[in-house]
Design a protein around this nucleic acid. Sequence first.
DNA 1: CCATTTACCTACCGTGTCAATAGGTTTTTT
DNA 2: AAAAAACCTATTGACACGGTAGGTAAATGG
Lengths: 134, 134
Amino acid sequence: MISTKGRYAIRVMLDLAENDTGSYIPLKDIAARQAISKKYLEIIVKDMVTGGLITGTSGKGGGYKLCRKPEDYPLGEIIELMEGTLSPVACLADKSNDCPRKAACQTLPLWVEYDNMVHDFFYGKKLSDLIRKP
Amino acid sequence: MISTKGRYAIRVMLDLAENDTGSYIPLKDIAARQAISKKYLEIIVKDMVTGGLITGTSGKGGGYKLCRKPEDYPLGEIIELMEGTLSPVACLADKSNDCPRKAACQTLPLWVEYDNMVHDFFYGKKLSDLIRKP
DNA sequence: CCATTTACCTACCGTGTCAATAGGTTTTTT
DNA sequence: AAAAAACCTATTGACACGGTAGGTAAATGG
């Protein structure tokens, strides 16, 4: 299940893309437009800055903006950053995994195939694909 | 993420299919072969009986058995039963949903497309596809 | 008939995540 | 200097996950 973190992050990105004026957009405005608690968005947006999705600046006239063109953001990158992983099972999520059943595991190929499908799906979609055309 | 409930359930089904002798298989044997706590498996197996995946009978000579042929079990049914849903977001998981943003939601089509893909994937795979050929 | 074996039932528990809320501090511009 | 904004730390309530513990009911073998 995609949590609010991932879903809200996509909405913030969309909001930034659609209301792009070239200058920084304050979080207050985004929170108001999206009807999401500004306080909660602060947490999410912080991770987005750390993860290299957006940039922020303090002070009057400050706010956030995208640092790439919308077509250069795969949705998979956004979701993976916010959710931690896109993988369906723990043994694929962290590569430092050393499951003793690995060789004998009958279901592992299934999870690998699923993992690849999901990865391809979300990395094939870009932020620009979701933008509302006026 | 698929939890242990779903993963263990599939392993129990596989164990039942591969060790099928026509009679009931006690949970003790399954737990030993799969190296999973019998106590924890009890919880999982109970849901599988209620959900119509397997049948169980008490007493000496009792245990569990499949109630269909392995090729008649879509993996999606097993996972959906154990995990509650296969849907990526809450607004698709429960149909009694009445999200006010539904009409305006820019991401809903994405989740619907994803939901369909996952559903098709797991309902296309059958338990028999995972059975080890000797 | 009775002891054994098995499923079945209820309850509990520690840990962690989710979805926020609260309040304060720093940075930057006007 | 004042305002506006990001940034930081801490806390909370609810709930799910991954079990554990102990007892009850049912069915069979001897």
